[in-house]
């Protein structure tokens, strides 16, 4: 029932929706906020594969986002490497580092894995902060050129928004495909019971590392898109807090649900815009939302919507749940 066609349709609809949002909203001052939230969604989709399907927690994903951003920024700015090459290198660095970290780390479980990724994130953050000759240190690294592909310069905010929207759609499609493939089934098996899947011949470690690296690559894609949009980068954007924010996006949106990650990322990135009215109490509301959601809506927003949908259409309840 969940074939390629269906996914393709959903992704097409989603892309169409993303493309018309700016037209519905008219003014363009929030385009950058939207672009940023879609960038975050790219990371969240990858992290969701790791958390929701492989059942592994990462508290250091901001590091992969940052590694790609800094690599591309430094290569293209300091060493005048051509943009596409610099961006590819950035994404590649995230992937390779994830591979190196993933092999020993993913042998660990639960809290230990959380700690290892957290420690890794802190180390990378300090590295950004202290290697001043390379990264510009805490005050940041500027003068980065905006994205250019085959002579076309994404100069306006709206063109960049479209670009990120397309990339996100691609990432979502890829993830949906993956989930419904052999790999996806293996991952879900691992999530349900590692022992059982091992007995049935699944190479657990290999699959876990694969997803970990894939999610780091997604974060890397987001990183290079981010850095060539803002054209400036400072370590503050890649700290522990952002890693936590990413995990929150996934949980809030709904784990083991690709669309959930997108919803969660958009919700959490756009929410502060509305909370701004409350100025100082924003942070309290943020905390309260996390608590209340986890208590009352543990499957996240996407899970909640699915539930609501099923309640409204009781006759389709045979198709319920177990995706």
């Amino acid at each position: 029932m969940y074939g390629f066609k269906r996914d393709m349709l959903a992704v097409l609809g989603f892309t169409f929706f993303l493309l018309i949002i700016p037209r519905i909203l008219g003014n363009d001052y929030y385009i950058n906020t939207l672009t940023l939230s879609l960038t975050h969604a790219i990371i969240a989709v990858g992290l969701n594969l790791l958390m929701g399907y492989a059942g592994q927690v990462s508290l250091g994903h901001a590091a992969f986002y940052g590694l790609a951003a800094y690599t591309s920024a430094i290569l293209t700015t300091t060493y005048s490497v051509p943009l596409p090459l610099g961006m590819m290198s950035g994404i590649l660095v995230s992937g390779v580092v994830a591979l190196l970290i993933g092999i020993p780390t993913l042998k660990l479980k639960g809290h230990y894995l959380a700690m290892a990724t957290l420690g890794f994130g802190v180390i990378v953050y300090i590295f950004f902060n202290e290697t001043i000759e390379l990264t510009g240190g805490p005050s940041g690294f500027g003068g980065i050129s905006r994205l250019q592909v085959m002579g076309y310069r994404f100069a306006s905010d709206i063109s960049y928004y479209y670009l990120v929207a397309f990339v996100l759609a691609g990432v979502v499609l890829l993830s949906l495909n993956l989930i419904h493939s052999r790999i996806g089934r293996a991952l879900r098996a691992i999530h349900t019971s590692e022992t059982a899947s091992q007995i049935s011949g699944i190479d657990i470690a290999k699959y876990k590392v694969f997803v970990f690296v894939l999610s780091a690559l997604f974060a890397g894609v987001a990183g290079v898109l981010y850095v060539h949009n803002i054209a400036f980068v400072a370590p503050g954007s890649f700290g522990f807090n952002f890693s936590i924010e990413l995990v929150t996006m996934v949980v809030l949106g709904g784990m083991a649900n690709v669309w959930g990650a997108v919803i969660g990322a958009c919700f959490l990135s756009i929410l502060p815009e509305f909370l701004r009215v409350f100025e100082n109490i924003e942070i309290v509301l943020y905390g309260a939302i996390l608590i209340v959601f986890t208590i009352f809506l543990p499957e996240g927003i996407a899970g909640g919507i699915t539930k609501l949908f099923l309640m409204m259409k009781p006759k389709r309840s045979d198709a319920a749940g177990k995706e």
């Binding site: 001052y29 929030y30 950058n32 905010d157 803002i230 503050g236 954007s237 502060p272 815009e273």
Partner: peptide, 13 residues
């Protein structure tokens, strides 16, 4: 909020 991203969106607004 002492964040680069938020400063950028504030400037846009």
């Amino acid at each position: 909020e002492s964040s680069v991203d938020k400063a950028v969106s504030a400037a846009d607004k």
